[in-house]
């Protein structure tokens, strides 16, 4: 792979994601002010000292955006990775085993999917103690159902191919068949799904924070910041739009990279066409 084969869109996506991660990791050093530090008037407009202005409590918006990247990214990324690990493992087991195991797993999954996600999340989060771990687990559990659906479908698609049967006839174990024969041939749709799910996770964290059940104040996170500052819109203060724009930008960047990855894996030597 050479650098010139990476399209401009993917570079933009990389740059955006990298920026978000730099903000998240080095927040205390980059941010001009503290996360919860009150530095001026409520909704003070932007000037040379406060580049993006202040929020509803007089905290620096730029600093909070930088700190917010931390929680938002951490929660969304860990929830998505968790959802994919569990979802793919379960769905592939279901697809390869068929029969009773497939039946039980699939129906359980249907059961989970039949409850509206937001309502389920609200109920569970309201009951359970509020912590980041619980939040991540709940989001991951909900995402897992979607990953399971897709994973089972693509794995079934590949599992009926002759080369899988040939591996079974050779006497290969289930693990070999899942990881060496099936998984490499399902990467394209799964990668695309990863990008989508990551974006949805960011939105979901934001939604929950907006409703007051996500990340708790005073910790900064982008969804919560929209909520905090939404009243300002009535007075013509654009403070709520900035974290909203950050969410949109990160989502788009993730999808730009995924688009490129998708095209790359499907045009690999030996790829199965534009899956």
């Amino acid at each position: 792979m050479n650098r010139r084969s990476i399209p401009l869109t993917a570079w933009i996506g990389f740059a955006g994601i990298l920026l978000a991660f730099i903000c998240a990791i080095f927040a205390p050093w980059i941010a001009p002010y503290g996360e919860t530090e009150i530095v001026g008037d409520v909704w003070q407009p932007a000037d040379a000292q406060f580049l993006l202005g202040l929020d509803n409590l007089g905290r620096d918006l730029l600093s909070r955006l930088i700190y917010g990247a931390r929680t938002t990214l951490f929660v969304a990324l860990s929830a998505t990775v968790l959802a994919f690990s569990v979802g793919i493992a379960l769905s592939f087991i279901a697809a390869v085993s068929r029969g009773m195991i497939d039946m039980v797993l699939s129906r359980l999954n249907d059961l989970m999917m039949s409850i509206p996600t937001l309502i389920l999340a609200l109920v569970v989060l309201a009951v359970l103690p509020q912590s980041l771990t619980v939040l991540i687990l709940v989001i991951a559990a909900l995402e897992t159902t979607r990953v399971f659906r897709l994973g089972r479908a693509v794995a079934l698609d590949v599992a009926v191919m002759d080369f899988v049967e040939a591996a079974e006839l050779r006497g290969e174990g289930k693990l070999w068949i899942v990881f060496r024969e099936i998984l490499p041939n399902t990467l394209s749709p799964l990668l695309a799904e990863f990008g989508l799910r990551f974006a949805f996770a960011i939105l979901f964290v934001s939604t929950l924070s907006f409703l007051g059940l996500g990340i708790q104040p005073p910790t900064a996170d982008w969804g919560g910041m929209v909520k905090d500052n939404k009243d300002g819109i009535i007075f013509g203060v654009s403070a709520a739009l900035l974290p909203g724009a950050a969410i949109a930008a990160l989502t788009i960047c993730v999808n730009l990279v995924v688009d490129w990855l998708l095209r790359r894996t499907s045009s690999l030597k030996g790829g199965r066409g534009d899956g």
């Binding site: 191919m161 002759d162 080369f163 040939a166 060496r180 024969e181 490499p184 041939n185 690999l268 030996g270 790829g271 199965r272």
Partner: peptide, 11 residues
């Protein structure tokens, strides 16, 4: 197999 295409893992 009849179809060598599908009898080998393309990856």
């Amino acid at each position: 197999y009849q179809m060598a295409d599908t009898a080998m893992n393309p990856r």
